[in-house]
């Protein structure tokens, strides 16, 4: 993950993001409607800052030109290392957002990524669990803090079993 990158908040991206979470609220797609609301503008849905991954040049969960990708193609994975098995899974454990104001279409945000704490725990289902915290600060074109995001990721030792 890049330590700092630009994140332009664009109306068409907000529209696509809102559709993907099944939210038909017109404030995410209709500038005329939005102008008549308290917010006064097309705004971003609460979890929209997660999609800043689109603008992170190093984001590892996006296929990149000229680089191998671990999803299926001719074979079930493009990364033979994955076929050896025994590997666990990186999962998202927690996510927290603090809104200093609501991001709106047209904002030119800058994301700054700050590494957080790391710890280990014995899991109920997935063996040993390694936790890692990351904090991302989103500042606007005036340098004002808009959103603080805190993410906790967990690396499991084994595949997590389906709840029956």
């Amino acid at each position: 993950m890049a330590a700092e990158f630009r994140f332009p908040v664009e109306a068409s991206h907000i529209l696509m993001f809102a559709r993907s979470v099944g939210d038909a609220n017109p404030i995410y797609e209709d500038a005329e409607h939005a102008a008549g609301t308290e917010a006064g503008h097309v705004i971003a849905p609460p979890t929209f800052c997660q999609s800043s991954a689109q603008f992170d040049p190093d984001y590892f969960l996006r296929p990149k030109v000229g680089e191998p990708w671990f999803g299926s193609g001719k074979n079930p994975t493009g990364d033979p290392e994955r076929l050896k098995g025994g590997g666990g899974t990186g999962l998202h454990a927690e996510q927290h957002f603090e809104y200093h104001r609501t991001p709106k279409a047209g904002d030119q945000l800058t994301a700054t990524v700050i590494p957080g704490k790391e710890w280990e725990k014995q899991g109920r289902k997935g063996g040993n669990l390694k936790f890692r915290e990351g904090i991302t600060e989103y500042r606007d074109q005036n340098g004002e803090l808009v959103v603080t995001a805190r993410s906790i990721g967990v690396q499991t030792e084994k595949v997590v079993e389906k709840e029956s």
Binding site: N25, I27, T37, E38, A39, I43, P46, T47, L91, H92, A93, E94, Q95, H96, F97, E98, Y99, T102, R150, V160, K162, E163
Partner: peptide
């Protein structure tokens, strides 16, 4: 709209 100050979650099951 635009009224949230904080929103945080823990993912419990897939």
């Amino acid at each position: 709209d635009g009224r949230l100050k904080k929103y945080g979650v823990r993912f419990k099951a897939q």
